[in-house]
Design a protein around this nucleic acid. Structure first.
Lengths: 340, 340
DNA sequence: GTTGTTTTCGAAAACGTTTTCGGTAAGAAT
DNA sequence: ATTCTTACCGAAAACGTTTTCGAAAACAAC
C-alpha cells in the first residue's frame, strides 16, 4: 500500500540504502552485478523516488511558477501553452496563477511561489503594477525571474518581448500607405510598457509622414473589452468627422469597433480602415476580416522558459547570469479591414 | 543569504527547535511569553517554513495536478481559471498539463503528477482515450481523482458534467420548434462521451417529433476546427438538398460553417438555421450571431476543485469517500442564427 | 513536607533521499 | 610476504520540519 522506499529495496537485497541509491543513479563505485540487481528490483516494485525527500535534499523542486494577468485570453493561453510544452521537455512542471490585472494579487502570488520555493518565476505584469518591490524581492531571493510581454523596464532581469513600437509603426504606416489621412488610435491603459510603446510607434509614424499628431484622436481604454471597442467606436464618430483609419491596441477591441461600424453602416475599409494587434484567431473569421499584427504567443512562451531554464542552470553551477532581452519578430497580416 | 530556519530562531532565542515550531503553530503547551518572543523574531527575520521539509514530514504538498486536452481553447481556459481561483482560496496550487488529445501523453502526464505526489488530480480526457488503466492507477494509488467534461463512465470516481444529451435535445428541439424539417448534425469523434451524448440527444429529439432519423445527415468530424466547419458545411450542401437546420457539436465549427454558408450565399437563418454548443465568447460577435448552448466552464472548474478538495480532506481524516456526479445546468442562448 | 496537578519545555525519532568519506577486500606489483 | 592499487560497499550526516512522550518546574492542596 505504502510507496516503495530505498530502505525496502536495501533490506530485501541485504545491502545498504547508500548502495541502492548509488546503483539507481549509476555511480561508478557500484558493481555491475549489484546495479543490475537493484535496478531489476526497483523496476518490479515500481519504485519512484519520493520527490518531497529529493526536493529537500537537493533544494530544488523542478517546478516553476507562472503569473499571467488573465488566463482566458487567446494570447496568454498561447503563451502558457508554449511555456508548459517547453518546460515539460526539460522535466519541469508549471504552477500557473493569474493576477487578474491586480497589483495586490500579483504581490501575494509572488509570495506564494517564493514560499513554495519554485526554481524560477515567469511573469507578465498586471496593468496596475507600478511598484516593483515584489519583483526585486524575487531577485534578491536569488530566484531566477524572466518577464515577458508586459514587463517593467526598470527591473534588472531577462525579458522576452516584441518590438511594440516598431510593430505599431508598421501598422500605422500601412494605414498611411493605403491612403489614410486622419488616423485615430485606441490605446490601452497608461502604465503598461507595451501600451506606451504602441502609442509611441503610432505617433512616430504620423510625424515621419508629415501628419500632425492630434491627441484628441487618441482614446485611452481601460479594460480592453469588446464592449469598450464598440463604445469608443461610437464615441469616435460622434466626436470626429472624416476619420479614415484607426490603429487599435488589441484585436478584441478592434472586433468590437468593426461590429459597431457595421451596425452604424460605416463601411470598413471604404469609409474607415481598421488595424488591430495580436492576430487573435477570431480576427480572420469576422467580416470584414481584420488586418493585424501577428504577435507570436507560443514562441514567446517557449523562449521565456528557455531563458529561465538557462538561468536556473547557471545558478546551480554558480555561474554568473547575464540578463538577456530577446525581441521576437512580428508580422503585418493583411486582411480585409484595410485597403490594398 | 540562506533562508531562515527554525534552528536559527531557536538558537538566537536560546530555546529548542521544538518549542519554536510549536510556538508558531500555537500549540497550547507553550507559554504566551515565549510564543510572543518567537513570533516576533520570526516576523522580523521574515521566516517562512521550508515547504520541502513540510511536504516530506506531512506527506502532502498542497498542490494538485490538472490535465486538459488543450489549453488554447475558450472552454478549457475558463475551466482552468475556475479551478485555479477556487484552489487558491483553499491554499492549493495547480500544476497544469495538456494531453494534446493524445492518450500516450495523457498517460505520461498522469505518471508525472503521481511521481510529484500531488494531493489530487483533475482531468478532462483526451478524445483518443479508450483505455482506463492509467486512471485506475491513480485511484489505486489512493490519490483523489475528479473528472470533468470529457469523462469515462466506467471509472469509479467523482465527476462534474453537464447533461449533454438533454442540452443537445434542447438545441435540436429549438430547431424543430422554429420550423426546421431536415436537420443535420456535425458531431465530434466517436469516443468521447459527450460527443456520443450530444448525438443521442439530437437523435431522440428528431424521433420524439416524428422526424425520421437519417444517418447520412450526421457528419463525424475529427479535430473540430474552424476549417473543418467550413469543409463540412460545403460537403453538406453538396450532398444534400433542402437541409434547413443544423446542430453543431461546438461553436468554433459552427462559426466555420456559418462563414462558409455566408460565402456560398446561403442565408442563415433564412435558408438554414445553425445552432452551436458551448457559448464561446466569439459566438455573440460574428454575423449572424450564433444561437448556442451555454456550457458554464468557470463553474465546472470551481465545482470540480470543490469535489476534489472534499475528497482530499476525507482521505486525510480516513473517512470513506463516496463519489459524486454533479450535473450543471446549461442554457439555450438565442441569437440570430436561428429563426424566432 | 509530601503529594498531586498543571504548566512549560526539549530530546529524539521520523519523513526518504543524497553524498561524503572512510574502510574492506581483492587483485596487481614488488 | 609485503606494499600499492583498484573496486566495491556502507556508516553517518545532512536537508528542515512535525509530533510524541517524558521530564522538569511551578504551583496548589493537604
Amino acid at each position: 500500500m505504502k510507496p516503495i522506499t530505498l530502505k525496502q529495496i536495501a533490506e530485501t537485497l541485504g545491502i545498504s540504502i547508500t548502495t541502492v541509491s548509488k546503483a539507481l543513479k549509476d555511480y561508478p563505485d557500484v558493481s555491475k552485478k549489484t546495479k543490475a540487481l537493484v535496478k531489476d528490483l526497483a523496476q518490479t516494485l515500481n519504485y519512484k523516488p519520493n520527490s518531497f525527500a529529493v526536493n529537500l535534499r537537493t533544494k530544488e523542486s523542478k517546478t516553476i511558477g507562472l503569473i499571467v494577468p488573465e488566463i482566458v485570453h487567446h494570447f496568454f493561453s498561447s503563451v502558457i501553452k508554449g511555456i508548459i510544452s517547453q518546460a515539460e521537455k526539460k522535466g519541469y512542471l508549471v504552477i500557473t496563477l493569474q493576477s487578474n490585472e491586480s497589483y495586490d494579487l500579483e504581490r501575494k502570488q509572488i509570495e506564494l511561489l517564493l514560499n513554495k520555493r519554485v526554481d524560477g518565476i515567469l511573469i507578465s505584469l498586471a496593468n496596475q503594477t507600478a511598484d516593483y518591490n515584489h519583483l526585486n524581492a524575487v531577485m534578491s531571493n536569488n530566484t531566477p525571474l524572466v518577464m515577458f510581454d508586459k514587463i517593467a523596464k526598470l527591473v534588472k532581469c531577462s525579458k522576452v518581448l516584441i518590438n511594440d513600437r516598431e510593430a505599431a509603426y508598421k501598422a500605422t504606416q500601412h494605414l498611411i500607405d493605403t491612403g489614410c489621412k486622419k488616423i485615430a488610435h485606441f490605446r490601452g491603459p497608461l502604465l503598461p510598457q507595451n501600451s506606451i510603446d504602441r502609442f509611441l510607434g503610432y505617433k512616430k509614424a504620423l510625424i515621419d509622414n508629415g501628419i500632425t499628431y492630434d491627441s484628441s484622436l487618441v482614446y485611452i481604454l481601460k479594460d480592453m473589452s469588446y464592449e469598450e471597442g464598440r463604445f469608443y467606436a461610437k464615441k469616435l464618430v460622434d466626436e470626429h468627422e472624416g476619420v479614415d483609419g484607426i490603429f487599435i491596441n488589441t484585436d478584441l477591441v478592434a472586433i468590437g469597433a468593426i461590429t459597431e461600424f457595421n451596425s452604424l453602416k460605416i463601411k470598413v475599409p471604404e469609409d474607415i480602415s481598421v488595424i488591430g494587434f495580436s492576430n487573435w484567431f477570431m480576427s480572420s473569421v469576422i467580416s470584414p476580416s481584420l488586418t493585424t499584427i501577428n504577435q507570436p504567443g507560443f514562441e514567446i512562451g517557449k523562449k521565456a522558459f528557455k531563458l529561465l531554464y538557462k538561468e536556473i542552470n547557471s545558478k546551480k553551477n554558480d555561474k554568473i547570469i547575464n540578463f538577456k532581452e530577446v525581441i521576437l519578430d512580428t508580422q503585418l497580416v493583411l486582411r480585409e479591414s484595410t485597403k490594398s
